[in-house]
Amino acid sequence: MGEIDKDRLVETATRIFAELGYDGASLQMIADATGHGIGSVHQVAATKADLYREVMQHVHTAEDKAMEDAVARFTSDREGIKLLADAFLDFYAGHPQALALWQHGWMGDAADVARMDVLYVQPRSAQIADKIRDRVPPDVDPDYLVWSVMWCVYGFLNTGAVHTSDEIPHRHAPSSAPRHTDLAGFQTFLHVMIDRLFAPPPQP
């Protein structure tokens, strides 16, 4: 069916890796989904690992672009962290496939490929932590502060939250039901959490 379009291949691979994980997908499966033969795919990516790296680079580039304004306006204080947290939340709330890719990786998927979090996540988190290191109270670890924000975002978007006033959902509720219907409420909590982590410890 002619030469395969690289952007379309990466888009298709992103969807399939997000749905099935790296280990659950095959290059042939991805080729079939594009309507091209495996030979056409090999012209773009020699192996499944190469294609997976292309996908994760594409996701990282999209996140960088979405975070660009917040990074440019970042200040090394609680307001700066809130700005980054909001941009981070907005990106992953709007890109569930990117979130799913990371979720698969945390469960041990793609173990034979170099860890993407070491390549893409840790450098940024370490850079932010270093910038706020002298601005947080002495009993707050800046690395844990940055990671706590990310963990909360990932966790909320993956599983949502049940409030004590909520009705218990029916056990057969459709799995496609939205998991995070209160983004504004969660964002408010995230800001409060950041404020608390920047607050000095109470005096004895």
Rank of each mutant, 00 (worst) to 15 (best):
E167N: 13
A177W: 07
H191Y: 03
L183F: 01
T181V: 12
A70T: 04
D32I: 01
V136T: 08
Q127K: 15
S40Y: 03
A72H: 07
I4K: 04
V113W: 07
F91S: 05
P174N: 02
A111D: 13
H58E: 14
M193H: 10
T34E: 14
A13D: 09
D134S: 10
H170Y: 10
V140H: 05
G108S: 06
A93R: 07
D195Y: 05
T61V: 09
A66S: 12
T164S: 12
H163N: 10
S26A: 04
R53M: 11
H42T: 12
T159A: 14
W151P: 00
H42M: 11
P201K: 07
I194M: 10
E54V: 00
I16H: 06
K131N: 05
S176D: 15
R73H: 08
V162M: 15
H60R: 06
R78Y: 12
K6F: 02
V71N: 06
G94T: 03
I16P: 02
D86C: 02
M193S: 10
A100R: 08
V55P: 00
M150G: 04
L145N: 14
V162S: 11
W102Q: 06
R73Y: 01
P204G: 12
M1I: 07
D32Y: 02
P200S: 08
D195R: 05
L119G: 00
R124E: 11
R115M: 10
R53N: 12
W151F: 07
I168S: 09
F74G: 04
F74R: 07
E63M: 14
S175Y: 07
K65M: 04
D77K: 01
F186K: 03
G37P: 02
A110E: 07
L89Y: 09
D141W: 01
V162I: 13
S165N: 10
R78G: 05
Y22C: 05
D166I: 04
V59C: 09
R15T: 13
F189G: 11
R115C: 13
D143V: 14
D112G: 09
A13F: 02
R53C: 09
M193N: 08
Q203A: 12
D86R: 13
A129D: 10
L20H: 13
H172G: 07
F91Q: 08
G105E: 15
D90I: 03
L145E: 09
D23K: 08
D64T: 12
H163S: 08
D134E: 10
G155W: 05
M107V: 00
F17N: 03
L183T: 13
T181C: 01
S26L: 05
L145W: 07
F198M: 06
C152G: 14
I81E: 06
